[in-house]
């Protein structure tokens, strides 16, 4: 399923600049999934992700009137989101697990297993994949999470990340290759 960019996003951005609450809300909810993907590429804790998303919402509400080009709302939002996430990580650096250590990663499936007995095996696979994803270099992790959070096209991802389309393509290929190789190495060692 391809994500459709709302045609009236620039119109909504214009209305949002004037302080229209509904316009701001629509803009944020339309872009919510990939926004979450970007934040999740910086921090892994769910509570922290929610806190950061709320900070992003507050900042958008306060600063949307400074948006110069309404047609580039997504780029503006992506930059703002990344900045907020990095700022949050800096302030809570000691308390956060920026990259999950092996020890913590082993604990996570157990915690999750307590909650979902029925889908234990599947959940373990998800946890394993998320663990490998979190071990990726940040730019690859960001591209991968952005891709799978809202199945964006290469062009849309390039717009959000402000990089060429080919860069997006290469980052995704490398991210997949790294995860694939690590999973194969683990299955062989087991």
């Amino acid at each position: 399923m391809k994500a459709k960019q709302p045609q009236n996003e620039a119109v909504l951005a214009c209305a949002a600049r004037k302080g229209d609450k509904d316009a701001i809300k629509t803009l944020i909810t339309n872009n919510w999934q990939w926004l979450k993907g970007i934040v999740a590429s910086v921090v892994q804790n769910q509570n922290d992700i929610d806190d950061i998303l709320q900070n992003i919402c507050v900042t958008v509400i306060q600063k949307v009137h400074t948006l110069r080009e309404p047609e580039r709302f997504r780029v503006w939002l992506a930059v703002l989101a990344k900045r907020q996430a990095l700022k949050y990580r800096m302030t809570k650096k000691r308390n956060l697990n920026i990259l999950l250590s092996d020890e913590i990663a082993r604990e996570v499936p157990d915690q999750h297993a307590e909650k979902d007995f029925e889908n234990l095996e599947l959940n373990e696979q998800y946890q394993q994949i998320m663990f490998e994803t979190n071990l990726l270099p940040e730019k690859y992790r960001e591209a991968l999470l952005l891709k799978y959070s809202k199945d964006l096209s290469y062009a849309q991802m390039a717009e959000i990340l402000d990089v060429p389309v080919t860069t997006v393509q290469i980052r995704l290929v490398r991210a997949r290759r790294m995860i694939h190789q690590r999973l194969i190495a683990k299955s062989r060692s087991n």
Binding site: G37, Y126, I129, L144, S149
Partner: peptide
């Protein structure tokens, strides 16, 4: 699996 994991662990949570 990646698609399902991200949906389950990131998008649907919170």
């Amino acid at each position: 699996l990646n698609q399902q994991a991200v949906t389950s662990e990131v998008i649907e949570k919170g």
